[in-house]
């Protein structure tokens, strides 16, 4: 039998592990405990983000990632990022911006970057979300490299093989800075977070959505070797 004091300390411990800013509107119910273990933004997986403040989630994820960050976008779109303002999130010197010419090149570059073992996060800025086969290819690449793939979708998402899909908007009335709603989740329930980017030590403490980065990924990276010819001959046989 635990005392009330012990229970309170356990609750405090959970809160700190989840990384919540105290005073945030977030009920400490059963779901919140699962947040830590379920790891909605898992490494070696590809996730999708829609909504007008999708960059906020990307920056929060990048802040937690270790290693270099590839930001892939068509033309000079990625040049809108301001390095000086990014410093509270992460060291902008680790950012590599890749300018591509079209959608196909963006997806190819994203695959190459995801395959890279030194890439902690790969942000793909794209108009229309990847479809089932495109996202599957990205997924395979992410499993090889072990980094987080984040697809920022400007227009609309398609049905895809992504692990989670998020919708990021601002909140009316401005109690919090962002509302992150998890609209699709392969390994858990959809839910929403009201997040406040409060910097006590000039840093942002979003909920710890990617704890598995420090531990080895839940799913061990799979090595894939593609043999298109053998596939064709196999089908013929």
């Amino acid at each position: 039998m635990r005392t009330k004091h012990e229970l309170m300390s356990t609750l405090q411990d959970i809160r700190s592990r989840v990384g919540l800013v105290s005073g945030q509107d977030f009920p400490a119910n059963e779901d919140s405990i699962r947040l830590d273990s379920a790891a909605p933004i898992a490494a070696a997986r590809v996730h999708e983000v829609t909504g007008s403040l999708r960059t906020s989630l990307a920056l929060a994820v990048v802040a937690k990632a270790t290693g270099r960050v590839f930001w892939i976008a068509i033309g000079g779109r990625s040049r809108c990022l301001r390095a000086r303002s990014l410093r509270p999130y992460f060291d902008p010197a680790h950012l590599i911006l890749v300018e591509t010419a079209n959608r196909d090149e963006t997806l190819w570059a994203a695959e190459q970057a995801l395959r890279c073992r030194g890439a902690g996060a790969v942000i793909i800025d794209i108009d229309k979300g990847p479809d089932l086969s495109e996202s599957r290819r990205l997924q395979i690449a992410a499993q090889v490299g072990g980094g987080i793939g984040l697809v920022l979708i400007r227009r609309h998402a398609q049905s895809s093989a992504c692990q989670t899909r998020w919708h990021c908007e601002s909140e009316e009335g401005a109690e919090s800075d962002w509302v992150w709603s998890l609209t699709r989740n392969k390994r858990g329930r959809p839910r929403a977070w009201f997040v406040r980017g409060d910097p006590p030590e000039h840093l942002i403490h979003p909920p710890d959505l990617c704890p598995s980065l420090e531990n080895p990924p839940i799913h061990a990276p799979i090595r894939f070797t593609t043999h298109p010819r053998s596939l064709v001959s196999g089908a013929a046989a």
């Binding site: 990022l81 990014l86 890749v98 300018e99 090149e105």
Partner: peptide
């Protein structure tokens, strides 16, 4: 593939 002039860092 896409050109070294299209890889930047801030």
């Amino acid at each position: 593939r896409i050109g070294f002039d299209r890889l930047h860092t801030p």
